[in-house]
């Protein structure tokens, strides 16, 4: 069934239809939240909150838009709210949780992977939230600038500026920590995902 059909059914109160949409997008929404807040437990909560909000407001969704970008927008807003409250209450950001979660004693390649992961997450952490959002929407979710502008507001051109700026800032952060050595190293072995727990 297409998104449009599933949304129509959901709007008519069909919960299983909505849960099919959840199944379809839960990984993307969770991944987005992970990138935004760098905390797997919070990301799980935020992803659930995003789906819950989408469900509650499903009738306000107009079919001329894409459900996926609408959902991403809700998820990003949940993350913004979370980041705002975390800033207010001063929780420290723990990037180790994402980087090293479940990592087992590992051979050298995995250590390298962990190191690269840590550097990248730290660099991402230091980006403004909006630039972090643009990076993940563009690189990981494959959205066009037009779609990104629908998620984040603003124009497609603004999304393009944010994306380019974010790449440059990341480059600077990574290189600074790097002393021109590790992080930018070509990394075929690094792509392996580290299972958690």
């Amino acid at each position: 069934m297409t998104d449009a059909q599933l949304v129509s059914r959901s709007q008519a109160g069909d919960l299983p239809a909505f849960e099919e949409l959840v199944q379809k997008y839960q990984r993307e929404v969770y991944g987005l939240a992970c990138r935004m807040v760098s905390d797997v437990e919070e990301a799980k909560d935020l992803a659930q909150q995003a789906f819950l909000q989408a469900f509650v407001h499903i009738r306000s969704f107009r079919q001329d838009a894409q459900f996926r970008t609408w959902l991403f927008r809700i998820a990003i807003n949940q993350c913004y709210n979370f980041l705002k409250s975390r800033r207010k209450f001063g929780d420290p950001i723990d990037c180790d949780e994402l980087n090293l979660a479940g990592a087992e004693p590992s051979p050298e390649a995995d250590l390298l992977a962990q190191d690269q992961r840590r550097r990248l997450y730290e660099a991402l952490e230091r980006l403004p939230a909006k630039q972090r959002a643009v990076i993940t929407l563009k690189v990981e979710q494959g959205l066009s600038y037009q779609e990104i502008s629908q998620v984040l507001g603003g124009t497609a051109g603004a999304a393009r500026v944010n994306y380019c700026q974010a790449l440059k800032t990341l480059k600077k952060h990574i290189q600074t920590e790097d002393d021109h050595e590790v992080a930018m190293r070509s990394s075929k072995t690094v792509a392996a995902r580290v299972p958690r727990r």
Binding site: Y30, G31, C34, R35, V40, L98, A101, G102, Q116, R117, L120, Y121, I135, V139, E140, C164, L167, K168, L170, K171, I174, A183, M184, S186, S187, V190, A191, R193, V194, P195, R196, R197
Partner: peptide, 18 residues
Amino acid sequence: ELRQVIAAIEATPVAEPA
């Protein structure tokens, strides 16, 4: 240099949960 940054992001996906 920008491509290296993009490659680094792609090579460092969010860990798949248990």
